[in-house]
Design a binder for these strands. Structure first.
Length: 372
RNA sequence: GGAGGGGUUGGGGAGCGGUCAAACCCAGCAGACUGUAAAUCUGCCGCCUCGUGCUUCGAAGGUUCGAAUCCUUCCCCCUCCA
């Protein structure tokens, strides 16, 4: 499934084969929680060269429900996207919907936010759902350990995730899709190593680092990632879940991570927070009201090639749907383009200088337009 | 001409003797957002020398310890009847 094409330091340039085609790594997966990347169509996704997207097992289970997706011929057909799809298991919802769920050894009980119905998710159900959706990459059910967590709590939580990982593996049977295990262990390196060892013994088609970017300091995010990524199997994909800012991603690629997903480009786009070659542009701010400039003079995306900042500002202020669409196109283009540039840098062995250059804009406290 | 109802801080609109610089919504200004309960949320939004400070609720008088709130006159607006 994974083919390594070249390396530059720890960084890896590769590609991953799925039954819905190949995608290049390092890869960024736009998030389409409910089977749609918010505000843009699959056609647009293809036009900005998205090669794989992420969707969500739990949210799709709640709405529209697995039966409707099955009746539509699977998730690809349902949403008319014929490239690879990865689904998160719902493990993150254990964390983000903390007030609405109960965790036991057996699984997770959710109280639906929609109608109060009791929903139940355990590794077996979770695997069954993801296989019924027909996704290319399924994730093991895990508990995303919150931050901060005492070492004893993080350890117990990690071990639960590992038992669930074994059950996920046992329940997952498929010839044309893959299952990834998820490393937990909070900000504790020894727990992370232990978690990885357990998962390696179980054997998955890929391995993910979970439970990061949940509020921990940047040093922990980078520290844990750079520590654990190089220890992950070299012949399989490495996926850092839920990360992150452009700088987070660049750093993690340097550490040898292959796959990313994050709501930042899409959610921030809808909130008028846009990534450009010069830093952040908050298009909602009044300073852009009269600007005839392009959003990013160095960007080739549809939004930047056709519209002025004052138009984007206007769309955002009037809450026109087109504003969300154009801004999402731009932010995703920025992310996908960044991944392209990273891949090219690894291929040519110039990642170090690429990162240095990147940090001039994105890791410079004296630049007001950044997001460290 | 007759009968009623109104005029409140940018707009809409509460308040109807003290707890009112005055709810709430919109607009405006800024901030947040990392495996999406998020096209969402938070803060600010009369003035200043920032305080038991000042000036506000159509205008001017009055009652009262105290008025956006009660009374009088005036000026506008709206509805209905002629």
């Amino acid at each position: 499934m994974y083919t390594l094409k070249s390396k530059d330091g720890e960084a890896r340039r590769g590609e991953i084969q799925t039954s819905h085609g190949i995608f290049q790594t390092p890869a960024f997966m736009p998030v389409g929680t409910y089977g749609a990347v918010k505000s843009i169509s699959p056609e647009i996704l293809e036009s900005i060269h998205a090669e794989i997207i992420l969707s969500n097992t739990y949210h799709l289970m709640e709405r529209p429900g697995v039966e409707i997706i099955k009746a539509n011929g699977g998730l690809h057909n349902f949403m008319s996207w014929d490239k690879p799809i990865l689904t998160d298991s719902g493990g993150y919802q254990v964390f983000s919907l903390a007030k609405k769920r109960k965790i036991t050894e057996e699984g997770i009980e959710f109280n639906s936010a929609l109608n109060g119905n009791k929903l139940f998710l355990n590794p077996e159900v979770c695997m069954e759902l993801q296989q019924a959706y027909g996704v290319d990459i399924a994730m093991a059910l895990d508990e995303c350990t919150p931050y901060p967590a005492e070492i004893s709590v993080a350890k117990e939580s990690m071990h639960l995730s590992m038992r669930w990982a074994q059950r996920s593996r046992d329940a997952f049977q498929s010839d044309n899709s893959s299952l990834f295990g998820i490393i937990q262990g909070g900000v504790y390196k020894d727990l992370r190593e232990e978690s990885l060892d357990i998962l390696k013994k179980i054997e998955f088609e890929g391995y993910a680092i979970g439970g990061l970017s949940v509020g921990e300091p940047k040093d922990d995010l980078q520290g844990i990632t750079s520590h654990i990524a190089p220890l992950m199997p070299a012949n399989k994909p490495r996926y850092l879940m839920g990360v992150g800012t452009p700088l987070d991603i660049v750093k993690a690629v340097e550490s040898g991570v292959d796959m990313f997903d994050c709501v930042i480009p899409t959610r921030h786009a809808r909130n008028g927070y846009l990534y450009t070659s010069e830093g952040i542009v908050k298009i909602r701010n009044s300073i852009h009201k009269n600007s005839l400039e392009k959003l990013d003079p160095n960007c080739d995306c549809y939004t930047c090639s056709k519209f002025s900042r004052s138009y984007l500002h206007h769309l955002d202020k009037t809450k026109e749907m087109l504003g969300s669409t154009l801004q999402t196109i731009h932010n995703l283009y920025f992310y996908l383009n960044l991944m392209r540039n990273l891949r090219a840098a690894i291929e040519t062995g110039t990642l170090q200088s690429f990162v240095k250059e990147f940090e001039i804009t994105w890791n410079n406290p004296s630049n007001p337009n950044i997001d460290i």
